[in-house]
Design a protein around this nucleic acid. Structure first.
Lengths: 205, 205, 205, 205
DNA sequence: ACGTAATCGAGACGGTACGTCCTGTCTTCCA
DNA sequence: TGGAAGACAGGACGTACCGTCTCGATTACGT
């Protein structure tokens, strides 16, 4: 839409300001959290006028969405040729992203906002969930193609279950064992009924 | 502990006021939602002085927690003698509770607050999760005792997965089919490996 | 009115409480001042229930009036036989009373309240001003009788002038010299035209 | 000092708001009086946000001081060439100012606040007292220069006495005669010892 | 070189809600 | 009945942000 109108008459926006704003948002998100993040504080911390924020973002949520958007990590779909090597790499990425301080803040925030604000839910859905869903599908379908998994696998259901598990563990962290281990066990449990004939592979643990 | 000391010196609190406050909170939660619920509005709607609210609850969150606490539905653990009859009753209860307007509001709120406020997380954990976890355990263990399921069932994992699924579907409602149906399918999928026809399979671990 | 009804059915009032209240008022008057004196604070400091204060005094001003009433210093009218010895004793008394911490507080308070509250003005008038006016009249009339002053002296005017001077100096303290000295000079100036050497001047009026 | 820097960065203050605020203060002072004047009421009556008041004035007293400051009447020093014509004009001005409803309110307030708040005392001293003191000095010195009064006149003392008398009569109004008459008699009494040789001028009354 | 037009800082403005403090009344138990 | 304790409705406090606005100063671009 409106293909980046190339004739921006008037003084162009200072990209320094852009960066300062989003940086301040990230900084404040990790320190005071979503609820206590005020635009006034962002302006102060960024050394920027309030007007410069309101000019760019219509609402507080839009501002925050933009901030976490630029900090969104790249998603790499592994292709090692082996199901579990692929999955382990995915789990590793997830651990990096979702279990950092900012990552947990972000995720928790998303959970809180998704229901309230359809707009937020949509952003999260498009930017986070869809790509990961697609990545999961790619990996699993490759495994099916290789004959590692049976074709009757319900990818959607498994994705939803793992995704929900991430939410559950984000809100109520485990105390007994590292999250990554628990995650892997869950994944093994979910995939186990679908291993193909060479059943001896099941022992892998 | 401190068994409700029965000699509360001074004028006793008016229970009418208690009810008015919590009622107003519930009412406002369903209308304007968590974020826009102001204590001022609660006081007005309840026909009560602001001080009477602050006297009872130290923070807004405590107030809201109390309000949804009293509106918490009773949890009934079914015992029909049949696994799937029990499970269907549980699912039905969950549908009633979690998919009503207030239920979804509440759940979404909890998700959003649990990470922010440890206090909230704890309340939710103790009041909601623990009882349901226990209920699930009871039902499944009865089924195991009856020989319907194999004993190597990982109840915790299955509970976490279902619980997470609830979160996922709360945040991102399905459009393809009713939630209850999807839930049931998930449950079937998770329990399927544990059906107990060939008793000799039990040793596998 | 209602001459101290001697049949106080029920439990008699605890005079300990009376004293505690008035003491707390005086204490708070000198520390936080009139404006910031709250009944709540009086109750706390006196170790007394708010009710016990309201039962005794209808308004805050009444309470304060009562407190400074009991602390009112006795007025002694000197009679040395010499005009200036009498006056010096009066000035000394005034210095003690009006220039102490509590005295200045009280006086300033009275000045501030007299205009606002007719009731306060009346109390001050009756309890403070009238007695002092009378004392002044007694002293000066004795001097006239002794022939030290001429009889055409306008006592009222001189009293008003000295009284006003007290107010003025209370509000705007002198920096150049001690108040007592200034007062004495004022008095000398006011009485000077009335010294009585040539007795034939008396007829002028 | 700091000569009114003419480059006030940021949006300039709306002078309309200034006027509305101070107007409301004056209005409320005359109606409800000093003690019951609430900032909330000022904001409401002025049709202005509370913040706009707090932005300008740090305390309630500062606000009130500013309000009566702008309503301060101009002081005109008469110069008729005759002592008593000058004095009568001054008395007339004083009567107008100090005996109006607002004038009495103001004066009473000043008396009450001067002791409590040094700030208030200073304002009153600089804005009210000093100018009037100077005016008195000018008039009396002119009279001395013209030979109407003797040079040994203690202007400060006479000013203090008259000033104090004003306070006294403000607090305790006369009932026997108009204030102006009493004032004039006091002035005559104070100046009488200083009339110069042509003693026949004394009869002026 | 000069107007046009947008950006940026600073901060005023009308608002809403906050959480605290105090008021004066009341209700309850204990002595 | 008096007194201690404290709940209650209500009012104002002073503060923090909200989102909008009005400024002067700056920075580009097309004449």
């Amino acid at each position: 839409m409106s293909q980046a109108l190339p004739c921006p008459i008037g003084r162009p926006r200072c990209s320094e300001v852009d960066r300062a704003i989003l940086g301040a948002v990230i900084s404040l998100l990790t320190t005071v959290g979503y609820h206590r993040l005020s635009i006034e504080a962002v302006a102060t911390q960024a050394g920027v006028a309030k007007t410069s924020i309101y000019r760019r973002y219509a609402t507080r949520d839009e501002l925050i969405a933009a901030a976490i958007e630029v900090n969104r990590p790249a998603l790499v779909i592994p292709d090692t040729g082996d199901l579990w090597q692929d999955l382990d790499q995915v789990l590793e990425q997830a651990a990096e992203v979702d279990l950092s301080a900012l990552g947990r803040q972000t995720l928790a925030m998303m959970l809180g906002l998704a229901s309230t604000s359809p707009r937020f839910a949509q952003i999260y859905w498009q930017r986070y969930l869809m790509p990961r869903h697609k990545a999961a599908a790619v990996i699993l379908e490759r495994a099916i193609a290789r004959g590692e998994l049976s074709a009757d696998l319900n990818i959607d259901l498994i994705f939803d279950l793992m995704c929900g598990l991430l939410y559950k563990l984000t809100l109520f962290p485990l105390e007994t064992e590292p999250v990554e281990v628990y995650f892997r066990r869950a994944l093994e449990f979910l995939l186990q009924p679908h291993y193909h004939q060479p059943p001896q592979a099941v022992e892998a643990d």
